[in-house]
């Protein structure tokens, strides 16, 4: 009886050990966010997490417009980045973007809505299964997610829906891609306007091979804009394709010389 109890205990502890090793305790949040453990539990699901200064999250010195807060994540100092997640702890739609840089550098810039003062962070997953996290507090007036978009107030959102703009700039180490889409990016938190947002965006090469893939949520700003950096192999024409939560599909082509032409047009 004693032996069987002992073996039972041993068995239990033998089972418990690998589980405990998997679920490492979360590091204490340097930002002291009340939502850190909640979001970390959902996003990282027990995977190892480190706060890492090699993940650079550039936030503006002030939030001039809580509907359009620029955020740039540069994790090129890390090797083998598999995913970049941008999230704001205290937003009603916390995750803004999940980026998979297939043949791209670990760099993304976009603009998000803020519903109040909140930590804004990037979590970067490397091939070894570790999440590298960085970010900062951003002060913002309320209502970024719960006030209607400008085009809804103006009433012309449908006239421009799906207009896609963009260009590429060829560099020695990377090809910079910028894309913007006219879209109201409705959060679903405004009375009588259901959620309606861009949800997928992919950049592919001329053969249709995806090079960079984005999952986009309603907390990205109205008329979303993305800046990515592709590996220099993507020299030729690129294709952009996207889909919104209404099933509407968007697409366009980026010519390799497009950036040079704009640069020439604005040269003084």
């Amino acid at each position: 009886m004693i032996r069987s109890l002992l073996s039972l205990a041993l068995g239990a502890s033998a089972l418990a050990t690998p589980a405990a090793a998997l679920a490492e305790p979360l590091p204490a949040d340097p930002l002291g966010s009340p939502m850190w453990e909640y979001h970390a539990g959902k996003l990282f699901a027990g995977a190892p997490v480190v706060f890492d200064p090699r993940v650079m999250v550039a936030l503006p010195m002030l939030t001039e417009n809580q509907h359009v807060m620029p955020v740039t994540v540069d994790a090129r100092a890390l090797n083998e980045v598999k995913r970049i997640v941008i999230f704001a702890d205290l937003n009603p739609i916390p995750v803004a973007v999940e980026y998979t840089p297939l043949a791209a550098h670990a760099f993304i810039a976009t603009r998000i809505k803020l519903d109040q003062r909140t930590p804004v962070r990037a979590a970067v997953l490397t091939a070894d299964g570790v999440w590298h996290v960085a970010g900062g507090w951003v002060d913002a007036a309320g209502g970024g997610c719960s006030a209607p978009p400008v085009s809804r107030v103006r009433g012309d959102w449908a006239d421009h829906l799906g207009e896609l703009r963009g260009a590429v700039w060829q560099g020695a180490d990377a090809i910079r891609v910028r894309m913007s889409l006219r879209h109201p990016m409705d959060t679903g938190l405004v009375e009588n306007i259901p959620a309606y947002n861009l949800e997928q965006l992919t950049v592919s090469d001329a053969h249709g091979t995806p090079l960079a893939r984005l999952v986009v949520h309603g907390s990205v700003s109205e008329d979303p804009v993305f800046t990515l950096m592709l590996a220099p192999a993507a020299k030729g024409e690129l294709a952009v394709s996207g889909r919104d939560t209404g099933g509407l599909e968007f697409g366009g082509r980026l010519l390799p010389t497009s950036g040079t032409r704009i640069a020439a047009a604005v040269a003084r």
Binding site: A58, L59, P60, M61, P70, V71, T72, A109, R111, A167, W169, R176, R178, V225, T227, G259, I262, A263, A264, A265, V266, A267, R268
Partner: peptide
């Protein structure tokens, strides 16, 4: 305008 022309995003322009 030059920043847009050279492919910068808002944070870089600031």
């Amino acid at each position: 305008r030059e920043a847009v022309g050279s492919g910068l995003d808002m944070a870089e322009a600031a």
